[in-house]
Design a protein around this nucleic acid. Structure first.
Length: 492
RNA sequence: CGGGAUGUAGCGUAGCCCGGUUAUCGCGCCUGGUUUGGGACCAGGAGGUCGCAAGUUCGAAUCUUGCCAUCCCGACCA
């Protein structure tokens, strides 16, 4: 078979790559570190994007678009932010090519066309946006500004992986400006909740909400909140971040407003983003050795119908019935596809749709029609059953929700089973190797200790959970006093 | 960017060590036919700058050098 998949046990990384490539989500491209998102993968992203966009708008945000390029002088204005991203910036230095006089048919960079000022290709847009906000904000009446943008960004990564880390990726970045610290902090937390709700309810990926340690904080932020998810190989994946930026960018770009008391004050800021990386989280949370498993709520195709026919004359009969069923399903808002191509036989189609993770497959032949039923197969449990055509639409509507719940519950159970407490260094190290997952352990709160643990084990502090209970204990490395446990894991 | 591996048709590969006509096989693709309830079968057919570039040689997929890409392992990161 040409579509043979590597199993998770055999080679987890290869399994992941196989799923992305053979599942038709994405492809490698001619550009180093960049991928092509194929129609099936992009349809998934569109569903994610559309739902997030609705949620942003429900929380009062509007969309806008800022330039891809950031003049270097603006980029460097907020020092910490600039420093944090400097190592991975693509930079435009020229604006023209010309024919190479030495090599016929080849082009070269025109040395005459050097830019006065280099342009940084945005790794994130705080700089260009705050430079713009400066002109938009004079009074407290101009606040808050609640803007989101859907964009591509470029971060020149040394080592890339499909969806998880590519040089260019798609994301959304929210950038808000507020009159008070409280309001900005509230916004930061509110958007973290939006992310957590979206990822759990639509992508069926359970997450831990938390705060990053200073080491892991976004460059230029006062506080970085995050959602962390646990993948099937026991490694953690940061699924989204929401930053309280304090007045750092307002000060760097001199963005002040007159408050009600007629006094100048610096604006308070937030920024928050999720990216196409979430697709990687989705794949590694739900999929199995037979292929992808798509959560129904965002699956590009929720139900696929495969006709089973014998001879030329039965096909039109089945077509007729399927047309009725399709109309009923579409009226209920179900994304349904009729796979009636004659190029492949049913068995091939079954395998193909399993590989692509279509939640429900329906097969129908004359035998079923006579009994007024269809054969229905769930992707998540691989169960097959005969279901009456009467009321099929409503049945599917409920079934899709049940599948959504089931794969979330399965992922949640996995996360819980693989979240353990370690109370000594020996236990901690042993767990990392033998039972990978989240490890809840005491930490003395110093960046030095965190760094040392990372150096020794490759495990990082994923977050300090928001719902953390305070509990006196001793740091697993230093034995120093600690007030709470934090979540460690090896991470993507 | 360092260490390792790989690169032959859309995919998977044989050939390479030991240079020698027209580069092997399977899947896929095209045409026609038979088929269709878990990856169909028969017959015919198309498809290759052997990753790219230079070199050695009468002759290079095969030997040498450089480069590029992908994968794995590190350093960096969402």
């Amino acid at each position: 078979m040409s579509k043979e998949l590597t199993s998770r046990a055999e080679n987890y990384n290869q399994w992941y790559n196989d799923l992305v490539l053979k599942g038709g989500l994405a492809d490698y491209s001619a550009v180093k570190g960049c991928m092509v998102i194929k129609p099936y993968g992009y349809a998934l992203w569109e569903n994610m994007r559309d739902q997030l966009d609705r949620m942003f708008k429900e929380t009062g945000h509007v969309n806008a678009y800022f330039p891809l390029f950031v003049p270097k002088s603006l980029f460097e204005a907020e020092e910490k932010n600039a420093e944090g991203f400097a190592k991975e910036c693509a930079v435009v230095t020229h604006y023209r090519l010309k024919n190479d006089p030495d090599k016929k048919g080849r082009l070269m960079v025109d040395p005459e066309a050097k830019l006065e000022e280099e342009l940084v290709v945005r790794p994130t847009s705080e700089a260009i946006i705050w430079n713009t906000y400066k002109d938009w904000i004079q009074s407290y009446r101009d606040l808050p500004i609640l803007i989101n943008q859907w964009a591509n960004v470029v971060r020149w990564e040394m080592r890339t992986r499909l969806f998880l880390r590519t040089a260019e990726f798609l994301w959304q970045e929210g950038h808000t400006a507020h009159a008070t610290k409280e309001e900005a902090v509230d916004e930061t937390v509110k958007m973290l909740d939006v992310y957590a709700n979206f990822v759990e309810e639509y992508m069926a990926v359970p997450v831990i909400k938390g705060v990053k340690t200073p080491n892991e904080r976004f460059a230029g932020a006062e506080d970085t909140y995050c959602i962390e998810a646990l993948m099937q190989d026991g490694k953690a994946l940061q699924a989204g971040t929401s930053h309280f930026l304090g007045q750092n960018f307002a000060k760097a770009f001199n963005v002040q407003f007159l408050n009600k008391e007629n006094k100048q004050e610096y604006v308070w800021a937030t920024s928050w983003g999720v990216s196409t990386r979430l697709i990687g989280a989705l794949i590694m949370s739900h999929s199995d050795d037979n292929g992808l498993v798509m959560p129904p709520r965002i699956a590009p195709i929720q139900v696929v119908i495969v006709p089973i026919y014998k001879g030329e004359e039965s096909k039109p009969v089945i077509d007729g019935k399927v047309k009725e069923i399709m109309a009923e399903l579409k009226a209920l808002g179900i994304r349904v596809k009729y796979d009636d191509s004659d190029a492949a036989r049913p068995g091939w189609k079954f395998a193909e749709h399993e590989l692509k993770g279509v939640p429900v497959r329906i097969a129908m032949g004359l035998r079923d029609m006579e009994n007024n039923v269809v054969e229905l197969a769930r992707r998540d449990t691989k169960e097959k059953q005969s279901v009456s055509i009467d009321g099929l639409g409503n049945y599917l509507k409920h079934l899709l929700e049940e599948i959504q719940q089931n794969i979330f519950n399965k992922a949640l159970a996995f996360t819980k089973e693989n979240t353990r407490e370690a109370d000594s260094w020996e236990e901690f190290v042993k767990m990392l190797d033998e039972q990978p997952g989240f490890i809840s352990a005491h930490w003395d709160g110093t960046p030095e200790t965190e760094e040392k643990i990372k150096e020794l084990t490759k495990a990082t502090i994923r977050c300090i959970p928001l719902d953390n209970k305070l509990e006196a204990g001793k740091c697993i490395l230093t034995g120093n006093a600690s007030t709470q446990r934090v979540l460690f894991a090896r991470a993507y």
